[in-house]
């Protein structure tokens, strides 16, 4: 069980690292949203899965309720993260930001 927990935690950390580095390296605001909105979502999913596997050690009523709460967090994040991303994109579109395109170099 510990091995599964460590595996999922490390996977989530890799996703989070990709998200943070993508936010820094991407050239413009629209493409920054791609790593920010979604690598973080899957990172939260993987890390919460790891924590659930860790807390399955001694099973009781309290752990069952905390596992249900963690699943509630995952459900809410999966519902709210696309909405937040879409809201930010909408704000950018209405403000008239142009998106970054590849420049022709010759």
């Amino acid at each position: 069980m510990d091995i599964l927990a460590i595996f999922f935690l490390v996977t989530g950390l890799i996703f989070f690292t990709g998200g943070a580095i993508g936010i820094i390296r991407m050239p413009d605001f629209y493409s920054r949203l791609h790593p920010a909105g979604k690598l973080d979502t899957l990172g939260i999913f993987a890390m919460v899965l790891g924590l659930i596997f860790y807390s399955l050690h001694h099973f009781s009523m309290d752990t069952l309720i905390s596992i249900l709460k963690m699943l509630l967090i995952v459900f809410f994040v999966f519902l709210s993260s696309p909405t937040a991303t879409h809201s930010i994109v909408d704000a950018g579109m209405r403000a008239g930001l142009r998106h970054w395109t590849k420049k022709k170099r010759r």
Binding site: I23, F29, R32, A36, G37, G43, I44, M47, V77
Partner: peptide, 12 residues
């Protein structure tokens, strides 16, 4: 975007 990313890490 940066603030949103920080918030999603804070939950974990």
């Amino acid at each position: 975007v940066g603030v949103n990313a920080i918030g999603s890490k804070t939950v974990i």
